[in-house]
Amino acid sequence: EESQDIKALQKELEQFAKLLKQKRITLGYTQADVGLTLGVLFGKVFSQTTICRFEALQLSFKNMCKLRPLLQKWVEEAD
């Protein structure tokens, strides 16, 4: 059922947002740094506010889903 899928996805997004924040802090990056690095990787800079709202799960579900693969890549590249 679709609502189950969405619930599962939301849970996954929550966990990912936590992971992103932990990783960012561990590596000593600011939210603005992450936004700028996305610009380098994908040619589209994201504001500190956007990263902040992603981490706080304050973006729309659709936006969270759109941003996630980009931030996933950041997490992979950041090591």
Results as ranks from 00 to 15, higher is better:
K18Q: 12
Q58L: 05
L36K: 13
E14C: 04
C52D: 14
L70Y: 15
T49S: 11
I25Q: 15
K44C: 06
R68P: 01
L59G: 05
V45L: 06
K7E: 11
E12V: 11
K18M: 13
G43P: 07
L41R: 06
V75Y: 06
T37L: 07
A56E: 13
M64H: 00
L57C: 12
L67N: 15
Q15W: 05
L71E: 06
K23S: 04
L20C: 10
S60Q: 05
L9K: 15
D33S: 03
R24Q: 05
M64D: 01
K18H: 04
L59C: 12
V75F: 15
L41W: 12
F42D: 04
V75W: 01
Q31H: 10
E55Q: 04
L27V: 03
L19T: 04
T30C: 00
L9Y: 09
L57S: 07
C52E: 13
E55L: 00
F42W: 09
D33W: 03
N63T: 07
T26G: 13
G35C: 02
T37M: 13
I25L: 15
C52R: 15
K23N: 00
Q15M: 09
G35V: 01
E77Y: 13
K44S: 01
M64A: 08
L57V: 11
L38V: 04
Q22G: 02
A32E: 11
T50V: 12
K73N: 05
G28D: 01
K44R: 13
F42A: 12
S47P: 12
G39A: 03
A78H: 11
P69A: 08
L20T: 02
Q10L: 08
D33M: 04
F16P: 12
Q72W: 01
F54G: 02
Q48T: 02
T37H: 14
F16R: 05
K66W: 07
A56K: 09
V45N: 12
L41A: 02
N63S: 15
K18A: 12
A8M: 07
G28K: 03
V34C: 00
Q15V: 10
S60V: 00
K66V: 06
L59E: 13
Q4K: 12
A32V: 01
G28I: 04
M64K: 07
K66S: 12
R68Y: 15
K18L: 10
D33G: 07
L27N: 05
R68D: 02
Q10A: 09
Y29M: 14
C65M: 11
Q31R: 04
G39S: 12
K23D: 04
Q4H: 11
Q10M: 11
R68A: 08
V34D: 05
K62I: 08
P69Q: 02
C52G: 15
L41D: 08
Q48W: 09
K11C: 06
D5K: 08
K62R: 09
Q72M: 07
L57H: 15
V34K: 12
L71R: 04
L38D: 01
E1C: 11
K66H: 14
L67T: 04
I51T: 06
L38A: 07
R53V: 00
T37A: 15
Q48E: 15
K11S: 12
Y29Q: 13
Q72P: 05
A56W: 01
T30P: 00
F46V: 15
K73W: 04
L27D: 09
F16T: 01
T37K: 13
L67R: 03
L36F: 12
L70C: 09
A32C: 08
L27G: 05
L27S: 01
A56V: 04
F54L: 04
Q31G: 05
G39V: 00
F42M: 03
Q15N: 12
L67M: 11
T30Y: 08
K73S: 02
F54V: 02
A8L: 07
K73M: 01
T50I: 03
G39L: 00
F16G: 04
V40K: 14
Q4S: 08
K7N: 12
T49A: 12
Q58V: 04
L38E: 02
L38T: 11
I51F: 04
A78P: 03
R68V: 03
E12Q: 09
L59R: 03
E55N: 04
E1S: 03
P69W: 00
N63G: 07
Y29P: 05
G28N: 06
T50F: 15
E1V: 05
K23V: 00
G43K: 04
G39D: 00
G35F: 03
F42E: 04
K66N: 14
E76Q: 09
Q22R: 10
Q22L: 00
L71T: 08
C65H: 00
L13M: 12
F54Q: 00
Y29R: 06
Q10D: 10
A8K: 07
Q48C: 03
A17T: 14
Q31I: 03
M64T: 04
A78W: 00
C65F: 14
Q10C: 04
P69F: 04
T30W: 06
K66A: 12
D79R: 09
R24V: 11
L19K: 15
K66F: 12
L36A: 15
V75D: 05
G43V: 03
L13I: 13
L41V: 07
F42I: 04
L36V: 12
F42Y: 11
G43S: 02
K7A: 12
I6H: 03
V45R: 12
V34I: 11
V34S: 01
E55M: 00
G28A: 00
T49M: 07
T30E: 00
E76C: 11
F61A: 09
A32M: 04
L27T: 01
K11N: 12
A8S: 14
G39K: 09
Q15R: 09
Q15E: 13
Q31V: 02
F61N: 07
Q72E: 15
K23G: 09
L20F: 15
L19A: 04
G39H: 05
R68T: 05
K23Q: 08
R24A: 00
L36I: 15
A78K: 09
V75G: 02
S60P: 13
E14D: 03
S47L: 01
F42R: 02
L70F: 14
K7G: 09
F54M: 03
M64Q: 01
F42L: 04
S3C: 03
I51K: 11
V40P: 05
I51L: 00
L36G: 07
E77G: 10
K21P: 06
L67G: 02
R53P: 07
L59H: 04
L59V: 02
L20A: 02
A56T: 08
L59T: 03
V40H: 13
T26D: 12
D5A: 10
L59M: 11
L9A: 11
I6L: 09
C65R: 09
G39P: 07
C65N: 06
K21I: 00
L27Q: 03
L38K: 03
L70R: 02
L13Y: 03
W74G: 09
K11T: 05
A78T: 12
F54S: 03
Q48V: 10
L36Q: 15
S3R: 10
L70S: 04
A8V: 13
E55S: 05
F61P: 14
L71Q: 02
E77T: 10
Q48K: 13
S47F: 10
E12K: 15
T49H: 13
S3G: 14
V45I: 02
V34T: 01
E12P: 04
Q48S: 14
L13H: 09
L71F: 03
Y29H: 14
L20N: 12
L59K: 05
M64G: 02
F42N: 09
T37R: 15
